[in-house]
Simulated scan of single mutants.
Amino acid sequence: MQIPLQVTLKDMPQSEAVESRIREKADKLGRFYDKINSCRVVVESPQRHQHQGKLYSVRIDLTVPGAELVANRAQDEDIYVAIRDAFVAITRQLEDFARRQRGEVKTHTAPGA
């Protein structure tokens, strides 16, 4: 299933390779949940004057019926590692959301009840 995808690269030059990797990862999300409304991915490199090297941060906003899932903690010096980590985080959230929608999550009863 083709997911409506919006890719934004901030503070860095456009890169077809980076956008291609993001599209590839986004398409795989459809395997876990087929009712994704939209996916927005923002990749940025905000540090301009750092001696150790650039850190890339990736934020993913995934809209599904009744919720919006966000992964925004992926940071790494390697842009592809940051993208991978962000998609791992959003995939985990999407899997959990899909389980809750299907009613597969156990609910705990209060002790002594």
Rank of each mutant, 00 (worst) to 15 (best):
G53H: 03
G30L: 08
A17M: 08
V81W: 02
R59S: 01
A82I: 00
E104W: 13
A86I: 04
S20F: 11
L55D: 07
V88F: 12
L9V: 12
V58A: 01
L62I: 04
R102N: 12
D96S: 15
R100G: 10
V64A: 06
Q50D: 10
P13Y: 07
I3Y: 11
A110D: 01
N37P: 08
G53T: 02
Q14D: 11
D96R: 15
V7F: 03
I83G: 01
I90V: 15
E77Y: 09
T8R: 07
V81S: 06
R21E: 13
Q93T: 13
I83D: 01
V58Q: 00
L9E: 03
G30H: 14
E24N: 09
N72F: 04
V41K: 00
T63E: 10
Q101D: 12
Q47R: 09
R21N: 06
K25I: 00
T63A: 13
V64N: 06
Q2I: 11
R73N: 09
I60Y: 01
D78L: 11
E95Q: 15
Q50S: 07
G112P: 01
R92K: 14
T109K: 09
N72V: 05
H108N: 08
I3G: 03
S45A: 14
Q14K: 06
I79G: 00
R84E: 07
L29K: 05
D78K: 11
A26M: 04
P65E: 07
I22K: 03
M1Q: 13
E44R: 12
P4R: 12
I79R: 02
G66Q: 08
T107V: 13
Q47S: 04
V7W: 02
A82R: 02
S38R: 13
Q52L: 10
G103A: 10
I79H: 00
D27Y: 06
C39S: 09
P46D: 00
E16Y: 09
Q14M: 08
L94Q: 13
T91D: 09
D34M: 08
P4N: 14
A110G: 03
P65F: 06
R23V: 02
G53S: 05
